[in-house]
């Protein structure tokens, strides 16, 4: 009888340890850098060869035109910010605005140093990096899903998915 009770206690104990460990794995805070490697685009017919290369401190997009997805929206947003505060920004022409919002020159043509961005935990397995530039407003952010090793380029509702190779 005693040995049976001890057995049940041990089984319950082990089960609890397994539960605690699972919870820990699911909710643990990761190292705040995106794992180094190549992330290939997913479900995109227009740019099937696109990918993101992540190093310890930088990210870089390849074979994709980010302006096609995000530039127009950011030009409109930034025009509103600038026009609302002309004393601070001065007069910015449309051509200057187009140059400022050229996302390819920031993320595609050269590596983007993201070491100053902290990982923001926005879900059980999601870490967000703002990746902004110029006045902390322009740019395309990244979300990293730790459980499925996916990166999501995102700004408002426009999303591009990348999967780790």
């Amino acid at each position: 009888m005693k040995s049976r009770k001890a057995f049940i206690t041990i089984v319950i104990g082990l089960s609890l340890i397994v539960v605690f460990f699972t919870v820990y794995i699911l909710t643990r805070t990761q190292n705040d850098r995106i794992p180094v490697g190549k992330y290939r685009i997913k479900d995109n017919d227009k740019y099937p060869d696109a990918y993101i290369e992540v190093t310890e401190h930088t990210i870089q997009y390849f074979n994709i035109d980010l302006n096609e997805y995000y530039q127009e929206m950011q030009m409109l947003s930034y025009r509103r910010v600038v026009d609302n505060d002309p004393g601070y920004y001065g007069v910015i022409s449309d051509e200057q605005l187009r140059i400022l919002t050229d996302l390819n020159s920031v993320y595609v043509d050269r590596p983007f140093d993201y070491s100053r961005f902290e990982a923001i935990k926005t879900g059980t397995n999601i870490y967000t990096y703002r990746m902004t530039y110029h006045d902390n407003f322009l740019g395309v952010g990244l979300r990293y899903y730790t459980n499925i090793h996916q990166l999501e380029a995102k700004r408002n509702d426009i999303v591009l998915l990348f999967e780790k190779e």
Binding site: N84, D85, G87, Y88, T122, R130, F137, G141, R155
Partner: peptide, 25 residues
């Protein structure tokens, strides 16, 4: 939480990007 903002203190609009990468004003 803390959010990055563009602009100066003379403005009457605050535009920012939230933690879910959406813009709000």
């Amino acid at each position: 939480d803390t959010y990055p903002l563009p602009g100066s203190l003379n403005t009457t609009e605050i535009t920012f990007i939230d933690n879910d990468l959406n813009e709000y004003t």
